[in-house]
Design a protein around this nucleic acid. Structure first.
Length: 483
RNA sequence: GUCCCCAUCGACUAGCGGUUAGGUCACCACUCUUUCAAGGUGGCGGCACGGGUUCGAAUCCCGUUGGGGACGCCA
């Protein structure tokens, strides 16, 4: 049985899913789900100029992918539709008229150009632009006549002169703003569509949203919305403003730099679970020391009391750590499926068992996209310098490397069955007999097999994957290099 | 410029009048180890500043400074 908690995610279709937006959606979803409430999706497309083709699909796809399923929305309907603002034009018009009648708004006939130039002038003087609109004092009957005659106009909110407006926020507490610092903002544009300032109030009320969850950039304009609720005699919803997510050095996450959208991260090979987990913890804490949470767990433990007030800096390092944590916890089959495309990017040879490669690379993978660069040497031995054989820690030099490679060649030649156990036994027998460190004996082999200083897996694992023939070939190649 | 909000290690944060200020990431060291990771152990590192209030302040109040946000016919 759903409770009467209703939250909404109301993105505007601008083409991609900003990571901060996704977090807002997550929190709205979690607040609803943690209290058995409903989660509604509403599309705020009242700015016709900013519309981007295909954006709405991006929104659906992303929400579905990460598992934030909504109970009502444009695609699935619901009792309070339509859920796309551009389809609600008449509703806003109707309420705007009522608001005007209630004295909370008025028609304004000032031209866009005039306002523009006045604003610019104020700006150049370094002053704050605050428009004293003469239309505010127009006789309502006179104004109505001009509207009827077809004169272009907008509807502006009538902010009361003097006094102050206070609103309560569940994370920021009580916020009071002097009315005189508020502007008579535009509610209905000349194209008849509402601005955010009006549409969000009307829709949140009509859709019976109990908790308005949004970024803190709306904090200072929230009093204006309360004034509208009051003028219309509507009940004011609970507000939950969220601290913003920022980039290091106080910069915003930007689309241009590829660090702002969910897609950016997803395409780079971050797991959706890790992204969700990470952003859940940016500005919220569960009051214990755990950090790894599935969406299911979050649904049960999420609480508004854990939200913080200060802006949080998005730390790619910690996301990396968390992604690695998720990668390591995957079962081998899921990891293989996730890694397969990346493995295939680097490995074309059909004789290489990609499952074995995946097993080797799983524990070392932070982001899926760094897989190809780690395994490409398996496909083709890179050209490498003989100096790689000189390793202080392994105590190898050109001379003993050559010696050990020759022994490896002889020992491996004798092998009948080519599997990891057998290879390991054969080589460790030599190590024991010679009484040297495994590292010393195996490093030259590993270098010869990979042409790399560091590799996923040791010499014996690489040998197994490469197969007997290729292994021998690469050892010979190494011997040649050292002779 | 005006208004609003915020302020604990480099980052995310716990703390809500009495704590050796805790955890995680990053960093460093050691350890494990057939390289590198991962794992294990330890370490580095913080209450922005100045005034109050109080027997006692990271915690409450004021100011300063710093940061963020808003001031669009954008959301």
């Amino acid at each position: 049985m759903p409770s009467n908690i209703r939250t909404r995610f109301a993105p505007s279709p601008t083409g991609y899913m900003h990571i901060g937006n996704l977090r807002t959606a997550l929190y709205a979803y979690l607040i609803a789900r943690s209290q058995n409430g409903s989660f509604i999706l509403r599309i705020e497309d009242t700015d016709q100029e900013r519309l981007v083709e295909g954006s709405v699909e991006v929104i659906y796809r992303t929400l579905q992918l990460v598992g934030l399923e909504h109970d009502e929305g444009p695609d699935i309907g619901g009792p309070f539709g339509p859920y796309i603002q551009s389809q609600r034009k008449d509703i806003y018009r109707e309420w705007a008229e009522k608001l005007i009648a209630a004295g909370g708004a008025y028609h304004c006939f000032c031209s866009k150009e005039k306002l523009e130039s006045m604003r610019k002038e104020a700006e150049s003087k370094g002053e704050a632009f605050k428009y004293q609109d003469p239309c505010r004092e127009l006789d309502p009957a006179e104004a109505a006549k001009r509207v009827k005659s077809g004169e272009p106009c907008v509807v502006r909110q009538r902010i009361p002169r003097g006094g102050a407006t206070t609103f309560e926020d569940l994370v920021y507490g009580s916020v009071t703003v002097e009315n005189d610092t508020l502007e008579d903002g535009i509610l209905l544009k000349s194209d008849g569509l509402p601005t955010y300032n009006f549409a969000n109030v009307v829709d949140d009320h009509l859709m019976q949203i109990s908790h308005v969850i949004r970024g803190s950039e709306y904090l200072s304009s929230a009093p204006k919305y309360n004034l509208i609720y009051q003028a219309l005699g509507w009940e004011i919803p609970a507000y939950i403003h969220l601290p913003l997510i920022m980039k290091a050095a106080g910069k915003k996450l930007s689309k241009r730099e590829g660090d702002a959208s969910f897609e950016d991260f997803y395409n780079k090979g971050y797991l959706k679970e890790a992204i969700i987990n990470y952003i859940a913890l940016l500005g919220w804490n569960p009051k214990d020391d755990r950090e790894i949470f599935s969406l299911e767990e979050l649904k049960t433990i999420f609480s508004v009391s854990g939200l913080s007030k200060s802006p949080a800096i998005f730390d790619p390092e910690k996301l990396n750590w968390m992604n690695g944590e998720y990668v390591r916890r995957m079962d081998s089959e899921s990891f293989f499926r996730a890694a397969e495309p990346y493995l295939k990017q680097a490995i074309k040879r059909p004789d290489i068992d990609l499952r074995k490669v995946a097993a080797l690379v799983q524990q070392r993978t932070v982001v899926l996209s760094d897989i190809p660069g780690r395994v490409d040497f398996l496909d083709q031995l890179p050209d490498y310098d003989q100096s790689l054989f000189i390793n202080k820690k392994a105590k190898t030099d050109l001379a003993n490397s050559l010696e050990y490679l020759k022994i490896c060649l002889i020992e491996l030649e004798k092998m009948e069955t080519w599997d990891h156990e057998a290879i390991k036994n054969a080589l460790f027998k030599v190590i024991e007999e010679k009484g040297i460190k495994a590292n010393t004996f195996l490093t030259p082999l590993r270098i010869a097999l990979s042409g790399r200083e560091v590799t996923p897996g040791g010499a014996t694992e690489l040998a197994e994957i490469l197969g007997k023939e290729e292994t021998q070939q690469r050892i010979k190649n190494g011997i040649e290099k050292l002779s």
